[in-house]
């Protein structure tokens, strides 16, 4: 666990050493701010519903951009070799990098806390769904980070890592919008696979163990995939 902390600290710090962090945070805040507040006054409702509807789509391309360098850069520069010959296990490395990514996304969400603050000044805001939404956002960030980490462990090219991660995340987000094309017999299963479906449940303020279990499963599968990819490189 001590090693996980060291790797986490190093990765988290190095996000802020390169310009990527600032670019990603700016793009995130610009995009979500614009799309949330543009129609906000038309709806005339003091709720963050629209914000949480947008979040999975935006996370689908922001989070792979956050995670793309975690393994690909190491593989490309060759520092992967120095890292693996230090006294750390695969699990230490994966967890350290994963936590760095999740906390980075959480840090990215912090400025958006001004949205509920602003909205509550404008009208009567129900804080339950807001709290649920942020819990869901962190769970969603964890799942997508794990997926992005897996994509990054596959290749030494960051662009390929980004696109692979984005395709999987978009797939998970959009799959329950495409149920129309799916045969009736597997409708339930496919619907259950949708990340958006589970996220919207939580962001309504309903914290259901099934939704939490879903996000934890996706996280676990992503991290395990990264572990397998590392094993294969030996």
């Amino acid at each position: 666990m001590r090693q996980v902390t060291h790797i986490f600290k190093k990765e988290f710090k190095s996000y802020f050493l390169s310009p990527i962090a600032y670019i990603v945070i700016s793009i995130f805040l610009l995009v979500i701010g614009w799309f949330f507040f543009t129609p906000f006054f038309l709806y005339d409702q003091a709720s963050l519903r629209q914000f949480f509807i947008l979040l999975p789509i935006i996370f689908s391309f922001i989070i792979p951009a956050v995670t793309m360098r975690l393994f690909s850069e190491e593989l490309n520069v060759g520092s992967y070799e120095t890292l693996l010959t230090l006294p750390v296990t695969f699990t230490d490395i994966i967890l350290g990098k994963f936590l760095a990514s999740v906390l980075f996304v959480a840090a990215m969400l912090v400025p958006t806390l001004t949205y509920p603050a602003t909205v509550s000044l404008l009208g009567e805001l129900d804080w339950g769904p807001v709290l649920g939404g942020y819990i869901g956002a962190v769970l969603l960030a964890a799942s997508f980070s794990a997926v992005g980490l897996f994509a990054s462990s596959l290749t030494r090219n960051q662009i390929i890592a980004f696109i692979t991660g984005m395709v999987i995340c978009f797939g998970l987000t959009l799959i329950d919008k495409m149920l129309f094309f799916v045969p009736r017999s597997i409708l339930g299963v496919v619907g259950y696979l949708g990340a958006d479906f589970h996220f919207q449940n939580i962001s309504k303020g309903v914290i259901d163990s099934r939704d939490i279990l879903y996000f934890l499963s996706v996280t676990f599968i992503g991290l395990y995939g990264a572990h397998l990819a590392m094993q294969r490189k030996k």
Binding site: K10, L17, S18, V77, G78, S79
Partner: peptide, 8 residues
């Protein structure tokens, strides 16, 4: 060729 983290 000592591959290390370039931006650290």
């Amino acid at each position: 060729s000592a591959p290390l983290y370039h931006d650290m």
